[in-house]
Simulated scan of single mutants.
Amino acid sequence: MWIRLWEQLWEAHRGKTLFTLLGAVLGLIYLICGLWHMLIFVLIVYTCYHIGKRVDRGERAVPVKEMWRWLMDKWRLFR
């Protein structure tokens, strides 16, 4: 039963599954190694899930150009 569930997740949502697991592993390392807070753990897992979701949709993992344009538009006010 569990094997079929993982196979379905892997086939239908490969990026979300992979990056969520990566986020959980990184989050557990974060929790084990010292003074870590649960909010940081959730942020790591959610960020990796979001990246995986973008990969599943066929988009770039991190949209650098769009982020750069957005930041430049925001900073234009200070010039």
Results as ranks from 00 to 15, higher is better:
Arg60Leu: 13
Val42Asn: 00
Met38Leu: 15
Asp56Lys: 01
Leu43Lys: 02
Val62Trp: 13
Cys33Val: 07
Cys33Asn: 13
Leu9Ser: 00
Ile51Gly: 05
Arg57Asp: 06
Trp36Arg: 12
Arg69Glu: 11
Arg60Asp: 08
Leu77Tyr: 07
Leu22Gly: 13
Gly15Phe: 07
Thr17Asn: 09
Gly52Thr: 11
Arg14Ser: 12
His37Ser: 14
Thr47Ala: 14
Trp75Val: 01
Val55Leu: 13
Leu31Ser: 09
Asp56Leu: 11
Met67Gly: 00
Leu22His: 04
Tyr30Thr: 01
Asp73Gly: 15
Phe41Tyr: 15
Val25Pro: 04
Glu11Leu: 13
Arg57Lys: 15
Met1Phe: 10
Gly27Phe: 07
Gln8Lys: 11
Met38Ala: 11
Leu22Ser: 08
Thr17Ser: 15
Thr17Ile: 06
Ile44Ser: 00
Gln8Trp: 08
Val45Met: 03
Thr47Phe: 09
Thr20Cys: 11
Leu43Phe: 10
Val62Ser: 03
Ile51Arg: 02
Cys48Met: 15
Leu31Trp: 04
Arg14Val: 05
Arg69Cys: 06
Leu26Arg: 02
Leu9Glu: 03
Trp6Pro: 02
His50Ser: 14
Glu59Thr: 01
Tyr46Asn: 04
Gly52Glu: 00
Ile44Thr: 05
Pro63Trp: 03
Pro63Tyr: 01
His13Val: 03
Val45Asn: 03
Trp75Tyr: 07
Met1Pro: 13
Lys53His: 11
Arg54Cys: 04
Arg79Glu: 09
Gly27Arg: 04
Leu26Gln: 02
Leu22Asn: 00
Gly23Arg: 04
Trp70Ala: 13
Leu43Pro: 01
Leu18Met: 13
Phe41Asp: 02
Gly27Ala: 15
Trp2Gln: 13
Trp2Met: 12
Trp70Phe: 13
Arg14Lys: 15
Leu39Lys: 08
His13Asn: 02
Val42Arg: 02
Gly23Ala: 05
Met38Cys: 06
Arg69Ala: 10
Arg57Thr: 00
Phe19Glu: 07
Cys33Ile: 10
Phe19Leu: 15
His37Arg: 14
Thr17Trp: 03
Met72Asp: 05
Leu22Trp: 02
Gly27Cys: 02
Val45Tyr: 02
Met1Glu: 08
Val64Gly: 01
Ala61His: 09
